[in-house]
């Protein structure tokens, strides 16, 4: 395996963990998903087309692993937040506190969205996947990505009171 492939894989581990958390909302399962994804990536690295970006390829592997997991086990338990927003400090300005509260509301609003919407928001708005890349990861047409994503964005803005 090419060392550059290994470097890229290591660099993307936090992204994989975040996506795993977004899918499963459980830290232990996210860790398992990352591990499974890494093992599959190492095993199948020859199948990766070096001319495209590694992220969509890895996200797709992880998403398939997740679907496979929920097909077999109905894992439910303590759900965790995808992002741990740091606590406000006593020295924070009111603007900083407000910004933090807003992030917390975004986080909370995300958890109330249907899985399908949370997933696509995560891929495009947090992981910066293009519409075409998201379509490839999710195995759906680009038009479906756009309609699903716009519904998700409108639902999120509704929950956050953005008019």
């Amino acid at each position: 395996m090419d060392p550059a492939f290994g470097d890229a894989l290591v660099r993307l581990l936090p992204n994989l963990k975040r996506f795993g958390l977004s899918l499963s909302r459980r830290g232990d399962i996210a860790d398992d998903l990352v591990q499974i994804t890494v093992e599959k990536a190492i095993l199948n690295h020859a199948g990766f087309d070096g001319s495209s970006r590694l992220e969509p390829w890895l996200f797709r592997i992880m998403r398939n692993a997740w679907i496979d997991m929920i097909r077999r086990t109905r894992t439910q338990g303590q759900q965790v937040d995808v992002f741990e927003i740091p606590e406000s400090l006593p020295t924070d300005s009111s603007a900083q506190i407000e910004a933090r509260l807003m992030l917390q509301s975004v986080q909370e609003a995300m958890t109330t969205l249907p899985d399908e919407q949370r997933e696509i928001l995560h891929l495009v708005c947090i992981e910066d996947m293009s519409y075409a890349e998201a379509a490839e990861i999710l195995g759906i047409p680009k038009g479906t990505v756009m309609s699903r994503l716009s519904r998700a964005r409108l639902a999120l803005s509704e929950k956050l009171g953005i008019k």
Binding site: R18, F83, I85, P86, A99, R100, M102, L103, V106, Q107, M110, L121, H122, C125, I126, L160
Partner: peptide
């Protein structure tokens, strides 16, 4: 906002 979430 979502991009901010990842950064924060």
């Amino acid at each position: 906002l979502l991009a901010g979430l990842a950064k924060a």
